[in-house]
Nucleic acid binder design. Structure first.
Lengths: 354, 354
DNA sequence: GGCACTCCTGTAAAGGTTTACAGCCGCTGG
DNA sequence: CCAGCGGCTGTAAACCTTTACAGGAGTGCC
């Protein structure tokens, strides 16, 4: 009986007077006699049939869903990644499952293990920090995983990295070339992946430029606008002679800009400011922020592509773990260079609003 | 045989020497003899068993997944919504499927219809515009839908709205109270939901304040920083006497700020600027932007909750369509008021960075 | 001692799809 | 005219789980 509930191939088979196998074949484009074809198609459209994706997934073992797990969905960097990943996924006919780990290590590990429940075919993970437990979980991952972040060598999992060291070097070198010498550094938490790398980048850059490292010019705090403002105010009090502030991300840099404005410093004349990530915030600031684009979107895109390659039927998945690094790019704007980036330039176009 | 592939209840049953029914019962906490219980649990953990979510979904007819479909994932307003929706979903044990419609009407309709494939249990949709086709598709929706946006009355679907009219009125009234009289308005595309409503809000607000509507002070463009800057520059050229710019969102307002800076106007002394949405961009600007919080996060949260209520087993889903409106809130900062929002205030704390 | 009852367990069906295999029919070629 | 073959079609199994139902063993009570 074609009773309640949405139509299934059984309802169609009854209505068309054929077997369910024929229905399935017609609907999947395998051969059938023209008349059979006709009757099945007619019945299907009359009933408004839509194939049940769950049943199909159960049958053929994949869901056409990818999971993207990030510490915090609100962060512009992750937003840039989500956007690209979803675009790649959509183009390939995959849906995107977005998971927020809320920067919780246990939750991150849980996501990796939950690959086993077959809810999604693969995972792109952005860990807030990488512990031995991560290495263990990733090694035993029950499905394909791509990690965005700096992964130790032995782990048999694809990885996409930013090159914070070179990125920081680009920024510091630019500041030095603009004549700055006392370059403060406002970092985020050093026990996180980004914080750790960016700190190393700053020191390496100073060394490369022949400028001695001065601990008094360096501070670590939380990532965030308010934290950046407070940290900058402290630095300013301790070392009024600083002539540039380099920040580990744009939010901190926005805070630095605010603190400098509040202290009556002119930007960039008295003090230059540079950030990292080149998020939308950079162009919102005044003057617009010079920032190092660490290729968040690019990293997302690459991660998604690598994951899809693992899922492609061709490879029996025996390809070795791959590592790739996105090249950083310095975007110079008014916060370090008086002439740069006039208002009304063409960047950041096209966003819609609700 | 317990051959290749991940362990199933069958493998466990074999190993424990019991039937699959017993395995299922033990694993779902229904009663069993202590010894049986023991053997099943031991076998399950030895094999590293994880239940197959797809099979379970097929059996009991729901996936514990929600879909959230937005025009553009990068937009801060939608980001705020995603964040809240994902939090609510996660707390209720649901996963979140994020879909970008890329502001394509056909795609929006497709998402509604695709509810029929049983991939997710419900949908939160943010349409870019609402056409008769939308009304039709929503009326025939094969599953529960909550729309964020302004929905016509007859449609049997839950809805959450922003109150742009009151929101615009708050901003305009605030500008008037600060002594402004020639208040320009930079809108986004008027054929979109937000553009249309905000335009009406501006006119209503002027009327309420007893200020005549002056078409020369009004312009519509795309949402976006560059568009805002160009539009403001045009307005400034046509009407140098304007003393405030009200923008339909923060991106436009950022653009306006840049254009005003470029024109040598001081903010807020010469010209005040106010935006809408109160996104992260507002605090990134200098001076920080006065903005109307239209409750994006709140709307997301409510939409998610309404959807979950529809899914709760208690109700046979016969509750009538509900409509709810989030109250707007004016956040005054430096762009309209000289003293407001000192640098280093506590807003926007805690974001993490990669 | 036997009956009834309880507690536990196993068998089997259901959920919707895909697909291997076998069967049927009609046609062609010898 | 018959063997054989090709083209369609139908039956049934498989994917993995949950659960209704029936059956079996043990206990308590009369």
């Amino acid at each position: 009986m074609s009773s309640g509930g949405p139509p299934t191939i059984v309802s169609i088979a009854e209505r068309a007077g054929v077997s369910i196998a024929s229905v399935s074949r017609v609907l999947n484009g395998l051969g059938a006699r023209p008349e059979t074809e006709d009757r099945v198609r007619r019945a299907a459209s009359e009933l408004g049939y839509v194939p049940n994706a769950v049943a199909r997934s159960l049958k053929d073992g994949h869901t056409r869903q990818l999971t993207f797990a990030v510490p915090d969905i609100g962060n512009p960097v992750y937003v840039a990644m989500v956007r690209e990943i979803q675009a790649v996924a959509k183009a390939a006919g995959y849906r995107l499952l977005l998971h927020s780990t809320d920067a919780d290590v246990a939750d991150e590990l849980g996501v990796v293990r939950s690959l086993a429940d077959r809810t999604s075919d693969g995972l792109v993970l952005v860990p807030i920090r990488i512990t031995p437990a991560h290495v263990e979980a990733l090694t035993a991952a029950p499905g394909p995983v791509v990690v965005i972040g700096s992964l130790p060598d032995g782990v048999p999992v694809d990885g996409v990295q930013a090159d914070s060291v070179t990125g920081a070097e680009l920024a510091v070198r630019h500041l030095v070339e603009s004549g700055r010498r006392r370059i403060a550094f406002v970092n985020g938490p050093v026990d996180t992946v980004p914080g750790g790398n960016r700190g190393r980048g700053y020191r390496a850059a100073l060394a490369a430029c022949g400028i001695p490292y001065d601990p008094e010019l360096v501070t670590a705090t939380d990532f965030g606008v308010g934290a950046g403002a407070r940290a900058t105010a402290r630095l300013l009090a301790a070392r009024p002679d600083l002539d540039a502030v380099f920040c580990a991300n744009d939010q901190l840099a926005i805070g630095a800009v605010q603190a400098l404005h509040a202290a009556g410093r002119r930007i960039p004349r008295d003090t230059a400011v540079a950030g990292m990530d080149d998020s939308d915030l950079a162009v919102a600031a005044w003057p617009p922020l010079t920032s190092v684009d660490l290729g968040a979107g690019e990293r997302g895109r690459r991660a998604a592509r690598m994951l899809l390659e693992r899922l492609a039927p061709g490879s029996g998945e025996p390809l070795p773990a791959r590592r790739t690094t996105a090249a950083p790019r310095l975007v110079v704007r008014g916060s370090t260079s008086p002439g740069a980036a006039p208002a009304g330039s063409d960047e950041q176009e096209g966003a819609k609003s609700a």
